[in-house]
Simulated scan of single mutants.
Amino acid sequence: MEAEIDLWRAVLAQAISDTTKLLEKGKKKPKLWNDHLFRMDVRHLRRWFLSQSKEPGSFRFVCEVLDLDHARALGRIQEQFLQHMVLPRWKPEPKEEKKEKTVMNTKMNPTLSELHSMPIGELAELSPEQLANLQQQAAKAVESAKLTKEFLEGVISRRYADKADLLRKEAGKDFGTVRFIDGDVQVTAELPKRPHWDQKRLSDLFDRIRKAGEDPQEYMDVDYKVPESKFKAWPSQIRSAFEGARTVKAGKPTFKLSVKDEQEIAA
């Protein structure tokens, strides 16, 4: 028990030491308060001290283990440290020359890993170049994750495809789901059935059913569509006949950010 108490006493001492060092750094170099990594460290420490959680490792938990009055301890921490650790509004560094607008300052560009730790208000106030850089990072990350996922799925398929096919044959089916165990892992292999209907034949069947005096919609679903390119190419009298059946709705807005090169800016 004494060893556990010593452990949590060391945790609290380390947190106070880290907080003291951050404040000293901030006093010596005020520009650090605008640095993303420095701000993340400040947020992390503030959240740890101010958290209401009682989970193991939380400040409340440490106080309880060390038999400290949480309210009094937090009051002293706030007085000595936290009141001096209120983050100022983040501002991007101004660029001295206009041409530098086309140059990505990698030191000041936030990374995707920092994105979720920054308030949305601060993110919205980033420079257009920084937002464009983040958008490019996100696009590359999505593409990389997609390629990695496809590669991994290919590896998994190579390992289990034959086993899954064999189990389907044993079950007398060409499609569907089979399950089997590999070590401590249950493998669920799905092969969905995706029927494709010949549209010309369905159209002929639709007419035959209707001519026979039956309702073809009892047998099939029909979805009428008009390609927008054809609609725009029609004469006005034809378009007017269809306009009553046409409703235009806005899609999801998208914004693509790209930094102009120096020649475009100079122009």
Rank of each mutant, 00 (worst) to 15 (best):
V11Y: 06
V11W: 03
A13F: 05
Q14R: 12
S17W: 05
T19V: 04
K21C: 01
K25N: 15
G26D: 11
K29N: 09
P30R: 14
K31W: 09
K31V: 13
L32M: 09
N34F: 08
D35G: 05
H36T: 10
R39F: 12
R39T: 15
M40N: 09
D41M: 07
R43P: 02
R43N: 09
L45V: 06
L45Y: 01
R46N: 09
L50A: 09
Q52N: 13
Q52P: 01
K54I: 04
E55V: 09
E55R: 05
G57I: 06
S58T: 11
F59K: 00
F61V: 04
C63Q: 01
E64R: 09
L66E: 03
D67T: 07
D67M: 03
A73E: 10
G75E: 04
Q80I: 15
L82V: 10
L82I: 11
Q83E: 12
Q83A: 08
H84A: 14
V86P: 00
L87H: 11
P88Q: 08
R89K: 08
K99D: 13
E100Y: 12
T102Q: 03
K107M: 07
N109R: 14
E114I: 11
M118S: 01
P119G: 05
P119R: 05
L123T: 08
A124Y: 02
A124V: 00
L126W: 00
P128H: 04
A132I: 01
Q137W: 06
A141N: 11
V142E: 15
S144T: 12
A145S: 15
A145P: 06
A145C: 14
K146N: 15
L147Q: 14
S157K: 13
S157N: 10
Y160F: 14
Y160E: 10
Y160G: 07
D162C: 10
A164R: 05
L166E: 15
E170T: 12
E170Q: 05
E170G: 01
A171M: 08
A171D: 04
K173C: 13
D174F: 02
D174P: 00
G176R: 10
G176E: 11
V178A: 01
F180T: 07
F180W: 04
G183V: 12
V187Q: 00
A189P: 00
E190R: 13
E190L: 10
P192V: 13
P195E: 09
H196G: 07
H196C: 05
D198T: 05
Q199D: 12
R201P: 00
S203Y: 08
L205C: 09
K211Q: 09
A212R: 01
D215N: 10
P216R: 00
P216L: 02
Q217W: 13
E218N: 02
V222E: 03
V222D: 06
Y224E: 15
K225L: 11
V226F: 08
P227I: 15
E228Q: 07
E228Y: 02
S229Y: 14
S229F: 06
F231R: 02
A233T: 14
P235F: 07
I238Y: 12
I238D: 07
A241E: 13
R246S: 11
T247N: 11
V248Q: 02
V248T: 14
A250E: 02
T254S: 08
K256R: 04
S258K: 03
S258F: 04
V259M: 01
V259P: 00
K260R: 00
E262N: 01
Q263A: 14
E264G: 02
A266Y: 03
